[in-house]
């Protein structure tokens, strides 16, 4: 479905220029003491939120930036950062 995303460098562009990069899972876990369960959680596991989520995107057919943004997965629309995380 049609989507417009805001690249921090190029501004608003057609969603098909971008590659989805997954749910934002915070920083990569430290190597020291890393368990298979924690690594699996970081690599594979998702929350699959039906609603607003923070996620990664890559401007593949553009400037090449990686950035995070917020999107409502039920409407496929980019949204403003939710109030709670101000």
């Amino acid at each position: 479905m049609a989507l417009t995303l805001t690249c921090p460098v190029c501004g608003q562009r057609n969603g098909y220029e971008f590659r989805y990069g997954g749910e934002d899972k915070g920083p990569r876990p430290a190597e020291a003491g890393l368990t298979p369960a924690a690594w699996c959680d970081y690599v594979h596991m998702n929350k699959c939120t039906a609603g607003v989520q923070k996620e990664w995107w890559f401007h593949r057919d553009g400037c090449g930036s990686w950035f995070t943004t917020w999107r409502d997965t039920t409407k496929n629309l980019e949204v403003a950062k939710p109030e709670a995380s101000k």
Binding site: M1, A2, L3, G15, Y16, R19, Y20, C48, A50, T73, T74, K75, N76
Partner: peptide, 13 residues
């Protein structure tokens, strides 16, 4: 679709 979504909507694409 190329990105996760729950819309079940169609696209010209």
């Amino acid at each position: 679709d190329q990105w996760p979504n729950y819309t079940t909507q169609n696209t010209a694409h």
